[in-house]
Amino acid sequence: MNTAWARGICRLLIVLMALAPYQVAQAGMIGTDQLAAPASQAERDTVLNFVTRGDVARQLQALGLDPADAKDRVAAMTDQEVQALAARIDSLPAGADAVGVLFLILVLAAIWYVWRGGFR
């Protein structure tokens, strides 16, 4: 038993534990998406969407898109997606880069240490 290793692993586990709370967790035709929506809700959604689709397109422009791209992008979203973006576009994770080499090595080391015997 290498105590330096044990200490290292303990520290890593403490760090990981501290991270735990951050887990993120047509005309006349009625559409499929209307099947479950109650009337007033459906109407409210329509009004809301009118506002939020434009809002989200503007938010995307503010994040560096040109207006045509922003509009096309919003057009491919569902109402729920538009609303989710409108509410928290700045807090949603944006997948970017594989930069966590140090973290990767630490985690691999911890896993190797704990599960030396292999997966089974």
């Binding site: 994040l63 560096g64 096309d72 979203m77 973006l85 944006a94 970017a96």
Partner: peptide, 22 residues
């Protein structure tokens, strides 16, 4: 131009889903 957000330097999950539909 369909998924990347310049000022966030990344892509949002919702946009990944939406772009595949295009």
């Amino acid at each position: 131009p369909q998924v990347y957000l310049p000022s966030r330097k990344g892509s949002l999950q919702i946009e990944m889903m939406a772009a595949a539909r295009r």
